[in-house]
Amino acid sequence: MNTKDLLSISDLSPDDIGRLLSDAIELKARGWNSCLSGKTLALVFEKPSLRTRVSFELAMKQLGGEALYLSPAEVGLGKREPVADVARVLARFVDVIACRTFGHDTLVQLAKYADIPVINALSDLEHPCQALADILTIYEKKGELKGLNLAYIGDGNNCANSLLLACAMTGINCRLASPEGYLVDKAIFAKAKAYAEDSGAELYSGTDLKAALRGADVIYTDVWTSMGQEAETEKRLKDFAGFQVNAKLVSMADKDAIIMHPLPAHYGEEVDREILECPQSVIFDQAENRLHAQKAVLRDMLGGLEIGGRH
Score class of each variant (00 low, 15 high):
189 F>H: 07
151 A>G: 06
203 L>H: 05
183 L>Q: 15
219 I>A: 08
215 G>W: 06
145 L>I: 08
171 G>W: 03
134 D>C: 04
123 S>I: 11
285 D>Q: 14
272 D>G: 04
246 N>I: 08
189 F>L: 15
80 R>P: 00
176 L>T: 10
197 E>M: 11
70 L>M: 14
168 A>G: 06
62 Q>F: 07
8 S>G: 01
172 I>Q: 01
270 E>S: 10
207 T>W: 00
60 M>Y: 04
110 L>V: 00
210 K>D: 15
233 T>Q: 12
236 R>T: 13
52 T>A: 08
286 Q>W: 04
147 G>M: 09
137 T>A: 05
262 P>T: 14
124 D>P: 01
169 M>I: 05
275 I>A: 05
201 A>E: 01
275 I>H: 06
182 Y>P: 01
176 L>G: 02
30 R>D: 07
96 V>T: 03
81 E>A: 09
61 K>D: 12
279 P>G: 05
145 L>S: 11
106 T>V: 13
169 M>H: 10
288 E>S: 10
65 G>H: 05
39 K>M: 04
195 Y>N: 02
297 V>S: 06
209 L>G: 06
117 P>S: 09
308 G>D: 12
6 L>D: 06
205 S>P: 00
156 G>L: 12
253 A>F: 12
57 E>N: 01
218 V>A: 11
140 E>A: 09
121 A>H: 05
294 Q>P: 07
307 I>S: 13
266 H>N: 15
290 R>D: 03
49 S>L: 09
268 G>C: 11
71 S>A: 14
257 A>S: 14
112 K>G: 00
51 R>G: 01
153 I>M: 04
58 L>V: 13
90 L>K: 03
298 L>F: 12
260 M>A: 14
117 P>N: 10
16 D>C: 03
84 A>Y: 13
76 G>E: 09
283 I>W: 07
208 D>N: 15
30 R>P: 00
92 R>V: 05
203 L>K: 07
159 C>F: 05
35 C>H: 08
189 F>I: 07
99 C>N: 03
238 K>G: 08
155 D>N: 15
141 K>R: 15
99 C>F: 01
278 C>R: 05
143 G>K: 02
219 I>V: 15
53 R>E: 07
25 I>R: 10
64 G>C: 06
36 L>N: 03
